[in-house]
Nucleic acid binder design. Structure first.
Length: 513
RNA sequence: GCCGGUAUCGUCUAGGGGUCAGGACACGUGGUUCUCAGCCACGGGACCGGGGUUCGAAUCCCCGUACCGGUACCA
């Protein structure tokens, strides 16, 4: 089995195309197939080298590596259409010789007028066939004398073309509605319908899996295979991906390219997993499946027929799963661009910082949707607002109990008189006091004390936090992060706020960074 | 206009002549938790419409409707 993904390098990799690439990849990996990457850059106007590189970068990021194609090579290359021009020319000659192809000299204006006339008459708007009957010798002569011409395929009349689509079953078109398609443009470049057929045939592609937008091109391509006497491959047309309003996914729906989702902090596994779920289901009720598992279960014939709406909420849900499951080192690697962007980390982190990040990032990652939210989350480790904390009913209730006030008062006293306790000593002292004074209530009391000491308003466990405090100074305070060295001031302010709830709510505001 | 495709909760889907039409996301309620999130439990929510075929249709057939794609010297 040989399959291919054949993007035009005219922009970023769209999630719809990424899904097509994924399904091809899954099909290849499911069987012991070959996945080919071919670049369709015959539209010289719009194709760019940057797009080509960006597309390959996105594919690799998703883990969709190709066995044959651009950059990795292979026996049936070249894999860039712009490097196969002589091949197309050879086969064009062959078509003219066999009579399946013929030169057409019609002007754009004439073609346009013909089309208008047909539409008005309620007829299918196809090429009128004006140049069909020009004797080949005359046509050749006109071309050699310099006249511009395109090469068209002579579509047989009054018959049907049927192909068996793996996802939709048999699809039939009548040739009466198919105009003779342009194979070679007047500038000598091959047209899509022509180049794909030559390439798929020469690259021995067995399964063509592509978007539904190609379904009506397929009969023309089948006819071309016939003209060459080749066996057509198996076709499968995937339904399209829509926006929430059920129109084709576009920029006004927000992010549409793989690069954008990547920039928003979605993990590659999550995007891949989610994309696979649009239009395909593993059959049972499992949904969170990594790439290898998707490949193991994938079945082209069970792909849905209808278009699917891209739902970012669900993507975020899938992402959370992978965020929680990711190995710390991997997570830190993926987070680094976001941390750098927020100036939390500059350059390569030192081993100590890395270590610290590996401790703290996984803990925080379990409560975010996307990596881009991480810097903000990380900031809360060091920024603390006593006012909003006390505003919480549960905490407020607990803090108002006599035992609690006693603990905090004692702590406040400690803090104000202690000469130079380290943060860790402070924390331990506080923990001890909580224990002896309030017994079981201590659990809730850890909250204010912890936030006093660290500013931590999140949920990492004690053991995690103590080393975190120790290492926090690794991060440069100047980069917008308040270092733990400020904890004394926060502690004092917090204690004051408790002793004097009314004044406190005003007076402590300034201590928040 | 013409040709082709598609149609199950708001969304992704499972199922498929007789089911309490199942799951997931989202949503709502409650619980747990040092806030949020998370997690747990519970809940509301669907077979596009009309005709057939049949004892019986969401499922099969036809018609309609809606939506999507194509109708290019773009892919």
């Amino acid at each position: 089995m040989r399959v291919r993904f054949a993007p035009s390098p005219t922009g970023h990799l769209h999630v719809g195309n990424a899904r097509t690439a994924l399904f091809n990849f899954l099909l290849a990996r499911h069987g012991q197939g070959t996945f080919i990457l071919r670049i369709e850059d015959t539209d010289v106007e719009r194709s760019t080298r940057e797009s080509e590189l960006a597309i390959m970068d996105d594919l690799r990021w998703m883990g969709l590596t190709w066995d044959e194609g651009v950059e990795v090579g292979g026996l049936l290359g070249p894999y860039r259409q712009s490097e196969r021009l002589d091949l197309y020319a050879d086969y064009a000659r062959q078509l003219r010789k066999s009579g399946h192809g013929y030169y057409c000299f019609c002007s754009a204006e004439q073609l346009d007028a013909d089309r208008q006339r047909m539409v008005h008459a309620g007829l299918p708007p196809k090429y009128a066939g004006t140049c069909r009957s020009i004797p080949p010798a005359d046509a050749e002569a006109r071309v050699t004398s310099g006249e511009k011409a395109v090469l068209r395929l002579r579509v047989p009349q009054a018959r049907e073309v049927t192909f068996d689509d793996v996802v939709r079953g048999p699809v039939t078109f009548h040739t009466d509605v198919i105009g003779d398609p342009v194979l070679v443009r007047s500038d000598g470049m091959p047209a899509y319908n022509y180049a794909v057929v030559i390439d798929d045939a020469l690259m021995k592609v067995t399964h063509v899996v592509r978007g539904e937008d190609h379904i009506s091109n397929t009969p023309r391509q089948v006819l071309l295979y016939e003209a060459f006497g080749w066996e057509p491959p198996t076709f499968a047309h995937l339904s399209l991906v829509m926006g929430p309003d059920h129109t084709p996914l576009s920029k006004r729906h927000g992010a549409t390219s793989v690069a954008e989702f990547r920039a928003k902090g979605y993990l590659p596994e999550a995007l891949v997993n989610y994309l696979a779920l649009i239009g395909w289901s593993p059959g049972n009720e499992e949904e969170v499946l990594p790439l290898a598992e998707l490949a193991r279960r994938f079945e082209l014939s069970t792909v849905a027929h209808s278009a699917g709406v891209f739902d970012e909420d669900k993507l975020a849900w899938v992402n959370r799963h992978y965020l929680k499951a990711a190995a710390p080192a991997t997570l830190v690697d993926l987070s680094l661009p976001f941390l750098r962007n927020a100036s939390i980390v500059v350059g390569e982190p030192s081993p100590v910082t890395r270590d610290w990040l590996q401790t703290i990032v996984p803990a925080l990652a379990s409560s975010i949707d996307r990596l881009s939210q991480l810097p903000e989350r990380l900031r809360t480790v060091f920024a603390y607002d006593p006012v909003s904390t006390l505003a919480n009913d549960a905490i407020g209730r607990e803090m108002s109990e006599p035992g609690a006030r006693q603990v905090v008062a004692a702590l406040a006293a400690d803090l104000q008189t202690a000469p130079r306790l380290t943060d860790r000593d402070l924390f331990r002292a506080a923990a001890t006091r909580v224990k002896e004074k309030s017994g079981q209530k201590g659990k809730a009391l850890f909250h204010p004390i912890r936030v006093v000491l660290t500013g931590e308003a999140e949920g990492p466990e004690l053991d995690l936090l103590v080393p975190a405090i120790d290492r926090a100074t690794e991060l440069a305070p100047a980069r917008g992060l308040q270092s733990v060295t400020g904890c004394r001031e926060r502690a004092v302010a917090f204690a004051a706020a408790l002793q004097n709830p009314h004044e406190g709510t005003k007076g402590t505001k300034g201590t928040k960074s």
